[in-house]
């Protein structure tokens, strides 16, 4: 499977995605736009709270090409962060009280400067999280020692596993991914990850393999824990249930499967003001592979930079100026406010 970008698909263009979302909501379904719903909830304009997370996207290169990927990542994507841009991130982090650095991609580990960057973030006393796709650990012998590297730097691992069986996982993430993910999880467990008292956090991300919303997070966690332990001897700490965002490849899936209208309707009808209060863009700053600043990783992929009143590149980082900005919103934001809410850390209510 190739990325939308590589096949020059119409939906590789963020503007086309945004237009089709808005037209679908307003013209086809006659539903209120996100900004309107937020205003009714007394939250418009949406403003940041305390900045707690620097989410840095180290690049779009990935060893997998998942059917739902909002980044449109894959082996054919070559955009990755340079060491110079990483240094700019470190300079910003050194001046900031932000406690957590959340590294994502693509597969962030494929960036040749990844380990140096983790070490430097660790030296600054930051809590480092890596969004590891698991299969990268077993993809090549040069990555086999990643679990030990993570352990030595106290890295928190957050890994996608959309289901506790091969069938559904492979349909979303590619053939053979479940088997390799199980092997990688066992390697992470072997160095202490997910084990009680180790202090090494291993959290899984569940997102629906289809056009439906995630159910209650606690119930899903219980089921994943039971099956992964009984069938594979795997342990993990927490499970984050994340709603699929109607953008990029997932948006393409919604159109081709005939689920676009139904899914949008579901998101809008499930709008929850309490979830809107806790959306992650309020305490997160997202940095792209080329150093530009966004309110979240989804806005980054839609090329919706932070409001022009704020600095827009990491070289100009200014915590207090960023705190004054209005968060940039569009119709995809319904994905974070449905039901119990959705963020990179799971539900928000």
């Amino acid at each position: 499977m190739k990325s939308l970008h590589a096949t020059q698909h119409a939906l590789a263009d963020p503007l086309t995605q945004l237009d089709r979302l808005e037209a679908g909501l307003r013209d086809q379904l006659g539903l209120p736009l996100f900004q309107q719903r937020l205003a009714e909830a007394g939250l418009f304009p949406l403003r940041p709270t305390q900045m707690e997370i620097f989410q840095i996207n180290l690049g779009k290169m990935c060893n997998q090409t998942c059917a739902h990927c909002h980044v449109d990542a894959g082996p054919d994507r070559k955009e990755i962060m340079t060491r110079d841009t990483m240094q700019l991130c470190l300079d910003a982090l050194a001046t900031s009280d932000v406690p957590t650095v959340d590294l994502t991609g693509g597969a962030p580990e494929m960036n040749p400067h990844f380990r140096w960057f983790v070490e430097e973030c660790h030296k600054l006393g930051k809590h480092v999280m890596v969004r590891c796709n698991l299969t990268i650990i077993v993809a090549n012998p040069k990555y086999h020692d990643l679990p030990a590297f993570y352990r030595d730097h106290g890295v928190e691992i957050v890994s996608s596993l959309p289901f506790y069986n091969a069938d559904k996982t492979d349909r979303q993430r590619g053939k053979g991914v479940f088997k390799e993910s199980v092997r990688a999880l066992q390697m992470l467990n072997a160095v202490g990850y997910g084990k009680e008292g180790s202090g090494l956090l291993l959290n899984l991300v569940y997102n629906p393999a289809g056009a439906f919303l995630p159910g209650p997070q606690e119930g899903l966690k219980r089921q994943f824990k039971r099956v992964l332990w009984s069938e594979f001897g795997i342990v993990f700490n927490d499970l984050y249930a994340i709603t699929n965002m109607p953008i990029s490849r997932y948006l393409d899936y919604l159109f081709t499967s005939g689920n676009f209208n139904g899914y949008l309707e579901k998101l809008v009808n499930a709008f929850n003001p309490a979830a809107a209060q806790g959306v992650m863009c309020r305490n997160t700053l997202s940095v792209s592979w080329d150093g530009y600043l966004y309110d979240c990783d989804f806005n980054q992929m839609l090329e919706l930079p932070v409001a022009p009143t704020a600095p827009r590149h990491i070289r100009d980082f200014d915590d207090s100026a960023l705190q004054q900005r209005d968060i940039v919103l569009h119709q995809h934001c319904y994905g974070c406010t449905a039901g119990a809410g959705s963020s990179c850390g799971g539900t928000t209510t």
């Binding site: 559904k168 289809g210 159910g215």
Partner: peptide, 8 residues
């Protein structure tokens, strides 16, 4: 049942 994570 899908939402609650039941398998097919």
């Amino acid at each position: 049942t899908l939402e609650k994570g039941c398998s097919e």
